[in-house]
């Protein structure tokens, strides 16, 4: 990764995350097909909902014939972390037009967000529409195609977990977290480590009584507050 904010730099920067989308997208297609969705509906869900892990939640709730409002509410909870990410990201696009802002937001994902945050460490704290939109569009296209391929492959494969592909996303978060830790100079390194440790403890104990759909958002909110308090008290 370097400081260039061009379309070609974005394509290069996004390449590693493409493997994550392929792995999970194909797995989603297979799971959706196995649950009884047609390849058309699998693909439509990837086009319209476009929400990674939440799409697995939708399929499992459809299978159990959950009411539509409880499905929509669960998806809102799982994706409410998007509000935090968009809020963090929006300040870098203030100079771009409203339409471009909405476009960047519309296709925002965990991965493009994390990638963008990493990019900031190389680009002198700048982002632009060309770079971010390219990263977003590559991700979107890859996700749609992979889930379609998965739904078609679903006729032949029943157990996608065997290949370890579902770990691609987790590996990506590990990688992006590590790269963020070593390159983000705006927060003290030890403070960052303390916040990460806090998140681990909070997730562990939070899992006892908070549904996992809500946990990511709650832990993030508490961990950010914890970080601010620690920063003012000790750093």
């Amino acid at each position: 990764m370097n400081g260039d904010l061009t379309v070609s730099a974005a394509s290069k920067d996004t390449l590693p995350t493409v493997f994550g989308y392929i792995g999970i997208g194909v797995a989603f297609g297979i799971v959706g097909k196995a649950a009884g969705l047609s390849p058309l509906l699998v693909t439509l869900m990837s086009i319209i909902t476009y929400a990674g892990s939440a799409q697995f939640v939708i399929v499992s709730m459809l299978v159990t014939h959950s009411p539509i409002f409880s499905i929509i509410f669960s998806v809102f909870l799982v994706n409410s972390r998007m509000i935090l990410m968009s809020t963090t990201l929006a300040s870098y696009f203030k100079r771009e037009s409203m339409v471009k802002n909405i476009l960047v937001g519309t296709l925002l994902t965990d991965e493009s967000f994390a990638l963008g945050m990493n990019k900031l460490n190389y680009s002198d704290n700048h982002l632009n529409f060309a770079w971010f939109n390219t990263a977003n569009v590559i991700s979107y296209m890859t996700w749609i195609l992979s889930s379609l391929v998965g739904a078609v492959l679903g006729n032949f494969i029943s157990n996608p977990e065997k290949f370890g592909l579902d770990f691609a996303l987790v590996a990506m978060f590990i990688g992006l977290l590590y790269l963020q830790l070593i390159s983000d100079k705006s927060i003290n390194f030890n403070l960052q480590l303390i916040v990460v440790g806090f998140v681990l403890v909070a997730i562990y104990f939070g899992l006892i009584f908070i549904p996992s759909s809500l946990l990511i958002l709650l832990v993030t909110l508490v961990a950010c507050s914890f970080g601010v308090v620690m920063k003012h008290a000790f750093f």
Binding site: R81, L84, M85, T87, T88, S91, D110, F113, A114, M117, L169, V170, F173, I174, L176, L177, Q180, L181, D184, S186, I187, Q192, V195, V196, V199, L200, I203, Y204, L207, I208, F209, P211, S212, L215, I216, V219, T220, A223, C224, S225, G227, V228, K231
Partner: peptide
Amino acid sequence: VVEFLSFVPIAIMSALWFENLFVQHIGHLP
């Protein structure tokens, strides 16, 4: 708020990782 949000990237990325290291059993330790 900006200071608060500066912790979002590491908090969200580590939360997404750590959640995958446990299996939830509501009412009990994971």
